[in-house]
Design a protein around this nucleic acid. Structure first.
Lengths: 146, 146
DNA sequence: CTCTTTGCTGGATGATATCGACCGGAAACT
DNA sequence: AGTTTCCGGTCGATATCATCCAGCAAAGAG
């Protein structure tokens, strides 16, 4: 599916997506046009789904990060899902197997704000909250298999 | 801290970090040089920590995604943390409060692979695994406060 | 063996980033 | 108030980069 050069391109881009095409090509040992063509195809095939910026939440005033497991009460699942989606503090949420239906990552400025958010859904769901103390593994690509 | 234009720049970049400076400037209603200068400062201040590529794990052969809570046995915390960090399947891991010390996001090709990974740490930690069925909220920026 | 397809390169051209000079407004001194 | 300084901005020239095109080589199909 992916060859060595594709993997190399993804690796380089994951470290710096705003690198110039020329540099990217040089690091991958390719010419600019073929590099551009490979990127286009990776995009087209859906391997690359986008390019984004990483921002330090603390620099935005979000000093607290929590991982919240949400177990909606019977009949409340869809409402809860929509509430989570519309909550701007939620920066990531997955629907998972098991008793906890959702696992969400929440950013807040302080405890009061977190408390307020959880209160807002308390009537429709049980929640288990873990505060993030530190990040052991910063988001990264998995091993790129052949 | 951040003004309206900074927020706009972050918003645009979070949607497409490889946009040209010129387009970025146009969308933000600014000239290219001042846009470049603002990016430089956002970088310098640590607001922007990097630019990355988003990749579809399924396109890399990772058909299964799991969120694993890890509770190391007494005395095993550091070893477990290192083992997680060195596990290429782990694409994200936070150290959290509560009984579960770590919450990790794991990518695997199939159940056997997941089983193998969990077996690998079973002697040193208890784990609770939730398989990701779907993504309710794709990773995004939180509300950008003034 | 030839034809076709695919993926690459190099060079020309058009687009973009960057640099320097300059400008105006706000805050800080005198 | 007047002056100075600083900050953030624009504009235009130049250097750098992305893209287009023609041509080539290797691999697979007929």
């Amino acid at each position: 599916m992916l060859d060595d050069i594709d993997r190399k391109l993804l690796g380089i881009l994951s470290a710096n997506a705003r690198i110039s095409l020329k540099e990217l090509a040089a690091e991958a040992g390719l010419s600019s046009p073929s590099t551009a063509e490979r990127l286009r195809k990776l995009d087209e095939r859906g391997v690359i789904t986008g390019y984004t910026v990483d921002v330090d939440p603390r620099m935005l005033g979000y000093t607290l990060q929590a991982i919240v497991r949400v177990r909606p009460l019977p009949g409340q699942l869809h409402i809860i899902e929509r509430m989570i989606q519309e909550m701007p503090h939620c920066v990531e949420c997955d629907k998972v197997t098991g008793d906890d239906c959702f696992v969400a990552r929440i950013l807040v400025r302080n405890m009061e704000e977190l408390d307020g958010l959880l209160d807002g859904i308390a009537e429709r769901a049980q929640t288990s909250t873990s505060l993030v103390k530190s990040t052991s593994v910063k988001r990264r690509l998995p091993a790129l298999l052949p």
